[in-house]
Simulated scan of single mutants.
Amino acid sequence: MIIIRALAFLLFFTVIPMAVGRLITYKARVSLTEEYLIGFFGNLGIFYILYSVIAWLQLWVTMGEAVTGAFTLLLKAYFPLIAVLLIAWLVLERKSFSAGIKTATTKFGIITKKIFTDGFTVIYFLAFMAVLVLQLYMAYGYEVNEWSYDDYDYVVSSKDTITYDALSYVNIIDGTMPNTLEKRLAYSWDSYIAMLSKVSGFEVTTVCHTILPVLFLLIAYGVYYYIAQFIFEKTDDRLIFLLILSFAYIFGLYSHYSVTFRLLGAIWQGKAVLTVIAIPFFTMYLIKSYSSTLSNGRILPIIAISMGASSLTSLGIIFIPIMAVITWVLMCAYNKRIYGIRYLIASLVGPAYLGVFYTLIWMLQSDATGGSDQYFPFRRRHEWWYKWFKENI
């Protein structure tokens, strides 16, 4: 049973991202790495949209007494939708599985040949693998002891989501409900971790401090190799880049505000996933998109990445627009004209969604705590969707 649950957990880091990524890029095929990462963040974006709707309903029907059932409702909406997407992917790709496997095998063979036909490249490859394995070992064996002050929010909130069957609704200190902070309810990452814990049967702490560090380290270095492919033409130069980057990370833990801490200290936190995985990948994907012929087929992938990145932390409302606008300005300067407005707008969809959702939560919270329904005077206790929730007595 444990093995089955573990395999179900891994689906969210293997098959599901590839399926979602292939569906999103169906009209504009990209590399396997891009498909996987687009699918990974696209899946987070899908979860975020469902989460925001149900979290809003949870607050809407709260008129004093706490209600529960929102997390269960979210899972009932999310799992069938993912199942439909998987079936759609299998149907659409039924004739191209063999071709896809052949393409992946060919690319792997080319990379392997480049590595093992040159003596120095072999040395660089083995050195990088040794450093990577060391980091993975430390992540798996020792990050269980790494506790930052943010874990009193991230880990506890995820655990409370399961325990109380509610979405970011519980006071993390004393467990009282309802107790909602706008900045915490505005993103869905805590609830996504809770979903992973529920699916696997692993404790939230185990998911955060043992499993996710290993998986996210692999994804992060996959992103860094993706960046190296764009910067360097030769394989040995790419490996040297990864080696230098690895050592910079290993010896860069000078504070809890360093990038090293986000990668090697607390990578399971939403702001860490945003800064060491989402932002680097999104930046490079935008640069490649702007550098190629402009195509409407890239708009949906950009929106998917933007939504997924915005679901990680409320700080996405700041960091993502800064990155997107800077990238756009640089590409306009490079092309000496206003260029790629559609890509810029698509890249800002996620932060805009986050900002609107945050504002609506604030308005609803103001009504709840201010004693008067200033923004939503038509809100009633027994809406027809109240049947999905139950009072916490």
Rank of each mutant, 00 (worst) to 15 (best):
S295P: 01
V259W: 04
L264I: 10
G355L: 00
W328K: 12
G316D: 10
A333F: 11
F319Q: 07
I279Y: 03
G355I: 01
F232L: 04
L286Y: 02
S289R: 10
G316Q: 04
S311R: 04
M363H: 14
I287F: 11
I326H: 07
L360P: 02
I277Q: 03
Y257E: 14
R337W: 07
L264N: 12
S246D: 05
L300V: 15
F251D: 08
L364D: 13
G252E: 03
F357P: 00
Y339M: 10
N335Q: 10
K336F: 03
T275P: 00
S314E: 05
F282M: 13
V349I: 15
F319P: 00
V273Y: 03
R238D: 02
W362C: 02
N296I: 08
I318T: 10
I267Y: 01
K271W: 04
S306Y: 12
L312H: 05
S295E: 08
A346F: 01
K271Q: 11
Y343T: 02
Y257W: 15
I361L: 14
I299Y: 06
M331R: 06
V273Q: 06
T235E: 15
I287M: 12
S311E: 12
D237P: 01
V325T: 15
T313M: 07
S291W: 01
P301C: 13
I303M: 13
V273S: 07
T293Y: 12
I361P: 07
Q269E: 14
Y290G: 07
Y358N: 13
F319M: 09
Y343I: 10
I244A: 09
L330G: 00
L312D: 04
Y249W: 11
L315I: 08
I250D: 05
T260A: 14
L274G: 03
L243I: 15
P280N: 05
I305F: 01
E233Y: 06
R337F: 03
L245Q: 03
D367T: 06
I250M: 10
F282Y: 09
M284S: 01
G340E: 02
F261I: 09
I317C: 05
I318M: 14
L253E: 13
D236R: 15
K271S: 07
